Computed example of a mutant assay.
Amino acid sequence: MHTSAGLTQTAPRAVLFDRDGTIVIDVPYNGDPSLVQPMPGAREVLDGLRSRGVPVGVVTNQSGIARGFVTREQVDAVNARVEELLGPFDVWELCPHGNDDGCGCRKPGPGMVLSASARLGLDPSDVAVIGDIGADMGAAAAAGARAVLVPTDITLEEEIRSAPAVAGNLAEAVDFLWAGTP
């Protein structure tokens, strides 16, 4: 675990998670609920937050919809399977747009983090985002939320170097948010 900022902060009032590569194993453009597999420890981490009364949400880019690889209905079915396996989420934010659509929701833009925060009745500064790539970190920063990167084999070295905090797994990421120290 490392962080580029050594400041102790109050614990977040909600945690937003990226979907693919963060709480479920990444299956590119997945439209098949039977392929959903939780990341190791994801259910325990989410249940731990829920047991503390901390709202949890998902912020996910799903450009496969814009690209015609999957339908919105297929993505919704996959998301329903994610909830079946990992428990209920307080808020879901999904960007169906492609890279060149110019929307405000696609990460690294702040749209989904801002919307999820508003729907939870929270200021984005009271929210944390956990994800596996730089776009997740960028969305959090652009919205004014905190962020922790949990790298996978697709995470670029530059994304790891520039992340505000890096954890080895989801449990370590959540522990960091509550401890506020590396």
Rank of each mutant, 00 (worst) to 15 (best):
C95A: 09
T3H: 02
D47A: 15
A165C: 11
D175E: 14
G144W: 01
A140Q: 07
V24D: 06
F176A: 03
S117T: 10
V78M: 03
E159V: 02
A5V: 15
G41T: 13
E159R: 02
Q74K: 04
A80R: 08
S117D: 05
V174T: 02
P182K: 06
R106N: 14
P55G: 01
A128D: 09
V45N: 05
T181V: 15
G21L: 07
G57M: 09
H2N: 13
M39C: 06
T152V: 14
S115V: 15
D18Q: 02
S4N: 14
R106W: 14
K107I: 13
K107V: 13
L16C: 11
G168S: 14
P33S: 07
L170V: 03
R67K: 10
C95V: 11
T60D: 01
P88E: 13
I160L: 04
D26G: 01
E158P: 04
A140N: 07
R19N: 03
V78Y: 01
G31H: 04
R13W: 01
G131T: 05
I154L: 11
A118R: 15
L149M: 03
P38V: 06
F17P: 00
N61Y: 07
G31C: 07
G121D: 11
P38A: 13
S51L: 14
L120P: 09
V150W: 00
S34N: 07
V150R: 00
